[in-house]
């Protein structure tokens, strides 16, 4: 029967080494695939369009502000806050301060807070 000649073991060792090298290569490739994934995810996750849209909605409210009764103002604010929470899973609140003279125009400071669990956004804008 076979005598235990182990001279050939190094061939198997070479095979193992190549296999190991391949695994490392695969690891690197997987990492780079992850980079592309996070780029797209970053774009998807950062709610740029949502925040921009929310600001416009709030500005629309302040366009109408003067002609609304107190109750209607409260309703409108509730529209934005409650629908944001329910449909966009975002905590939104905003309030305004007294009107100020900003380079000749009467503007009110509007503070906006937005938080959707991942991204937090705070801003005070004169409108």
């Amino acid at each position: 029967m076979a005598c235990m000649n182990e001279d050939g073991q190094w061939i198997v060792l070479m095979g193992l080494l190549t296999a190991l090298a391949l695994f490392f290569l695969a690891l690197i490739i997987n990492q780079s695939a992850l980079v592309g994934q996070t780029t797209a995810e970053g774009v998807l996750e950062f709610p740029k369009n949502d925040i921009r849209d929310l600001r416009l909605a709030i500005f629309d409210y302040y366009d109408d502000y003067g002609e609304l009764t107190l109750l209607q103002q409260q309703h409108y604010v509730d529209d934005i806050v409650r629908i944001s929470l329910e449909r966009k899973n975002a905590v939104v609140y905003f309030w305004d301060g007294p009107q100020q003279d900003v380079s000749g125009r009467m503007l009110r400071p509007v503070t906006i807070h937005y938080y959707n669990g991942v991204t937090k956004y705070d801003e005070t804008v004169y409108y």
Binding site: E6, D7, G8, I11, T18
Partner: peptide, 14 residues
């Protein structure tokens, strides 16, 4: 036989 066998084994692993 051993050399051939080991060659085959290494090839299969890779």
């Amino acid at each position: 036989q051993l050399y051939t066998m080991e060659g085959v084994a290494a090839g299969v692993i890779m």
